[in-house]
Design a protein around this nucleic acid. Structure first.
Lengths: 156, 156
DNA sequence: AATGAAAGCTCTTAGAC
DNA sequence: GTCTAAGAGCTTTCATT
């Protein structure tokens, strides 16, 4: 399910916060001392701001971006999933339990779920989708390229 | 465009590498000393492995996961975009230049692009899509919940 | 590949503006 | 909310197995 409710009021970020987030997005493991240099504050103030952004919930977590191709996932697919009547919760569970589904959103409209799938081969697509097609109609698109890779939203 | 070509051969990860990646995915800023404790190695060996995973391209980058709701993006949409004849490159450029499109994949099939959009309001959806609809047909789904948030693929 | 010890940095805490 | 200063803690190097 959705991870948590929205914060009551949106956080307001100043220029320094924006610079900090951009720097952390580019390299989350850089030392506070270097972040401090980049944003033009002392190390303690910088550390304090990072903690505040975490406390406010702006920073959800620090994480690592994996390249699926380096792990042999040569194929990426985006699958729209429309559960058959009465199968919605079961379909959701099936998707959650298959680790090759690396992302799944429940959306308005005819296709209930939109999911991202990492695959080693085209045969594996068939194999994985067969676990879903007993309970849902699916519509699959293979990713050819990624004009915009996950990026920060505008921080204005 | 796509960021780079796939590595020649997929990296092979042992149990320790997998534990490291899982730990870094959960908190990319934790000290090497703590990572070392978790995976049961010394700090120097652990630091060496992290460097190797980066050099191999398995780790693309260390980054920060932002909560769009904490920034006032109360709405998230997934938009399929089908450029009109001859408008493909222009549509791609338009999408790339609008920062609210935080992700976009070019896919096989009728709908050329599948994009994720962060929005402050439903009015803003209209406003942003109007910049695309001169050159493409769009089909929009509003995200209601996220059964699977971005997660690591199987590391086997 | 991995380890331990030591040098060198980095982080945090404390106290002041 | 920010700073400097100093002690605590971390990372890295290197010799060793």
């Amino acid at each position: 399910m959705t991870k948590r409710l929205a914060a009551a009021a949106p956080a307001t970020l100043d220029e320094t916060d924006r610079a900090l987030l951009a720097a952390l997005a580019a390299d989350a493991r850089q030392p506070v001392s270097e972040l401090a240099r980049r944003v033009g504050l002392s190390a303690p103030s910088t550390a304090e701001r990072v903690r505040r952004l975490e406390a406010q919930g702006v920073i959800e977590r620090f994480t690592v971006q994996i390249d699926p191709r380096a792990l042999g996932f040569t194929l990426q697919a985006i699958v729209r999933v429309k559960p058959l009547p009465g199968q919605l919760h079961l379909v959701e569970d099936v998707i959650r339990r298959i680790p090759e589904f690396v992302e799944c959103d429940k959306v308005t409209g005819d296709d209930c779920f939109i999911c991202r799938l990492y695959l080693h081969s085209i045969e594996q697509l068939d194999e994985i989708l067969s676990k879903v097609t007993e309970r849902a109609e699916t519509s699959t698109a293979i990713v050819k390229s990624t004009p915009v890779a996950r990026r920060l939203p505008p921080l204005g």
